Computed example of a mutant assay.
Amino acid sequence: MTPSNTTPPPPGALSNIVTLAVTEDEAEIRLDRWFRRHYPFLTQGALQKLCRTGQVKVDGKRAETSTRLQPGQMVRVPPIPNANKPAPIVIAVNAQDAKELGRMVVYRDDHVIVLNKPSGLAVQGGPGITRHVDGMLEALREGSEHRPRLVHRIDRDTSGLLLLARTPGTAAKLAASFRTREVRKTYWAVVAGRPVPAEGVIDMPLARLGSGPGALTIAADRGDEDAAYAITEYVVRDAAARRLSWLELSPLTGRTHQLRVHCEALGTPILGDPKYGGEAAHMEGFEDRLHLHARSLELPHPSGGTLTVTAELSSHMKETFKILGFEAGVTPAARRS
């Protein structure tokens, strides 16, 4: 009888034949991706050979690397030398950062965590960036074998909602939802001027110039081979004469700096934008910080139904709303339907 196991043997060992159960959060994952998750050092070529020779089986039957797995199925894993899962890397988080991260949490359950990230805090590290959300996530492990992981990103200077997955399988499901545009993202921005018309769709391809921190996103011609299509819906929620407006923005694509460049292309740059706004975006009497906030997320929940989460405005945008007389209203509680 084939022994059953749930944990690969120690790194470097030649494993016995084991049978691993597919877990609930691994539903619909491809067999090759399942192996990469459990045996990260196993190459694609080696796995293909194991499948081709019938050494890998799913529920007792030969399987291809593209086979989609379902919860409860049993995967036969043959002896695999030097292909075992390494010990998890634990990143220490100081008490102050852990406390700050805890205050950012606006929703959590067994599958996801949603943060309301402050403006100025980077999501991931990079040149000159040593403090970032990704480096704090160990504080949200809460005894789980899995460290929460980022599903998407928002700009360092943008405040608002950031979605985390609590398991690798959940991360894969959520990433697929972003790719297929099942996730609806809504942003609020304060912009210089007032768009005409008051609502519409910005359909403008974008391209990246350069790389690293100095890279820029620019409007591009449709025939440009380096261009990526980018579409944003917008509506004016309120305006202070024609000097400043409150926009609700819904990006239908997810290009780097898309909203910032699209607003600038409308002739209404986002207030406080240091990169794309120009002089028009910097006004006396208002805090000179980017006025862009990831206000809400609506997405298919990994365990079924729809999750809707809304984030309170950042402090500097609250102050600007107060000065301009914009009424944000009560921030609704997260809900699943």
Rank of each mutant, 00 (worst) to 15 (best):
A230Q: 05
A230W: 10
A230D: 03
T232M: 07
T232G: 04
T232F: 06
E233W: 03
E233Y: 07
Y234K: 04
Y234Q: 12
Y234G: 08
V235L: 12
V235R: 15
V235F: 04
V235M: 06
A239V: 08
A239N: 05
A240E: 07
A240R: 12
A241S: 09
R242K: 15
R243H: 04
L244K: 11
S245T: 15
S245A: 15
W246H: 03
L247C: 00
E248G: 01
L249I: 10
S250V: 14
P251Q: 07
P251F: 08
L252K: 15
L252V: 13
T253H: 04
R255K: 05
R255A: 03
T256M: 15
H257C: 08
H257M: 12
H257L: 13
Q258Y: 08
Q258T: 07
R260M: 01
R260A: 08
R260T: 06
V261H: 01
C263P: 01
E264Q: 14
E264R: 15
A265E: 12
G267P: 03
G267F: 13
G267W: 11
G267S: 07
T268F: 06
P269N: 07
P269M: 06
I270F: 07
L271D: 08
L271K: 01
G272S: 00
G272R: 00
G272Y: 00
D273K: 09
D273T: 06
Y276R: 04
Y276K: 08
Y276D: 00
G277P: 02
G277T: 06
G277E: 07
G278H: 02
E279V: 13
E279L: 14
A280M: 14
E284Q: 11
E284A: 04
G285F: 12
F286R: 04
F286G: 00
F286C: 01
F286I: 06
E287R: 02
R289C: 02
R289E: 08
L290H: 06
H291G: 00
L292D: 01
L292C: 05
L292M: 05
A294R: 05
A294T: 14
A294P: 02
A294C: 12
R295T: 13
L297E: 06
P302F: 05
P302Y: 09
P302E: 04
S303Q: 11
S303D: 15
S303V: 10
G304Y: 14
G305C: 01
G305H: 10
T306A: 04
V309Q: 11
V309M: 05
V309E: 14
T310I: 10
T310F: 10
T310Q: 08
T310L: 07
A311M: 13
E312Q: 15
E312F: 09
L313C: 10
H316N: 05
H316D: 07
M317R: 01
K318A: 11
E319C: 03
F321E: 09
I323A: 03
I323Q: 05
G325Q: 14
F326G: 10
F326A: 06
F326V: 13
F326H: 04
E327W: 11
E327T: 14
E327A: 13
